[in-house]
Design a protein around this nucleic acid. Structure first.
Lengths: 150, 150
DNA sequence: ACGCTATTGTAGCCAAGGCTACATGGAGGT
DNA sequence: ACCTCCATGTAGCCTTGGCTACAATAGCGT
């Protein structure tokens, strides 16, 4: 848990304006912590839907990392109760994992559709959506949905 | 019957579709690498404009991290030629650093204005902008500018 | 001039997320 | 049966980015 408590910085002068900025940076960093989980959950759900199972190698290819990275990430997700790893068999999502995957997939879809509606070329939209989706708050997501449906 | 016939070497199916997805993930990760630099450059430029100098402690308060984290980050940015650290005096931006700060500031402003124009509440917009700005490609940024000016 | 305090800097710990190199497991082909 | 090849797994290293605890400066006030 990063940023639990702050240091005793003096904060002289009219620094309060900056303090809330610090909060925003904190949020951004905290959000980053969940990105991996969302990406993996989504990729796993996708692979299961597409190929019937999610194997380590397929995940690695899909996410663009080495199989070692996948294995370690899965161990973490497993500790976190999002996935169940069946050695040499594949990976399954727990109930929580499926919920996370569904949320991520939905958000991804909305962001992508939104960018397209904005007039961003398909290729770029797909790349940007990958980076943006993890930082879109519920309020902004709703605004995007409104815009798309408009 | 999990992965009945698509398991072997073939594993075919739409793997090319996944390959490009891997590329997208790669881009997102690469972009993440520059986030720190942009955040610091922007914060430093801001502090210099506001207070006349950018000190380590002020930066730490501003970014919401400990002064130690700032010091280490500055060392890296210095190696990268973005800042010049004057021990016990403050930090200055190099030409490249100023350019980066300007770009970051501009993008930040556009994203924020865009979110506001979309109808996102100010508070949320400010938080989201912090997370989103680093993942907005030039094409998407232009689309956002068009939308705001509309 | 001297010491106190806040700012800076150093040492060292932790987790995440990358990697390569090497070790095992499992299944198909001969 | 066995051999080989690919998928998995393990060991160990690197960087980034957090942190606390402690050491060293600088600059101010007395």
């Amino acid at each position: 848990m990063p940023g639990a408590k702050r240091s005793r910085t003096t904060n002289s002068g009219p620094r309060w304006a900056l303090a809330s900025q610090a909060e925003r940076f904190r949020s951004a960093r905290a959000a980053h912590a969940d990105e991996t989980a969302e990406d993996y959950a989504e990729a796993i759900a996708d692979l299961i839907a597409r190929e019937g199972s999610a194997r380590v190698t397929a995940l690695a290819a899909c996410l663009g990392v080495s199989h070692v990275t996948v294995i370690r990430a899965l161990a973490r997700l497993s500790r976190g109760g999002l996935v169940v790893v069946m050695p040499y068999k594949g990976v399954a999502l727990t109930r929580a994992g499926r919920a996370l995957a569904a949320r991520a997939k939905h958000r991804h879809g909305v962001v992508l559709a939104f960018l397209r509606a904005l007039g961003v070329p398909a290729r770029v939209a797909e790349t940007d959506a990958e980076g943006l989706e993890h930082h879109v708050s519920p309020a902004t997501l709703r605004a995007m949905e409104r815009f798309v449906k408009r």
